[in-house]
């Protein structure tokens, strides 16, 4: 399983990465979260950051951000 957080590194992207980390921990799965800051890479999936990609699928993009429970649900749906 692979999880990517897309964003050039703003407050919202940090928040998204934090939520993903927490969700992974709570789900008890051992997955490293990859932060993607390269524009070319980001734009393969979306042009609205922050984005959340699970197993190559775009699960969230842009504002408003989901809440922590929703992030967990989005990741869980790909397990």
């Amino acid at each position: 399983m692979e999880i990517k957080v897309l964003g050039p590194g703003c407050a919202n992207c940090e928040k998204m990465a934090e939520m993903a980390k927490k969700a992974v921990k709570e789900l008890g799965i051992d997955v490293k979260i990859e932060k993607v800051t390269n524009i070319q890479e980001i734009m393969k999936y979306t042009m609205s950051t922050p984005g959340l990609v699970v197993n190559g699928k775009l699960k969230h993009s842009g504002k408003p951000l989901p809440n922590p429970d929703k992030v967990k649900e989005l990741i869980k749906s790909e397990i």
């Binding site: 050039p8 919202n12 524009i39 734009m43 609205s48 842009g62």
Partner: peptide, 14 residues
């Protein structure tokens, strides 16, 4: 249109 200021660059390119 909602957008985070952090996505100004990808948005512009897009």
């Amino acid at each position: 249109t909602p957008f985070c200021s952090c996505s100004a660059v990808p948005l512009f390119i897009g």
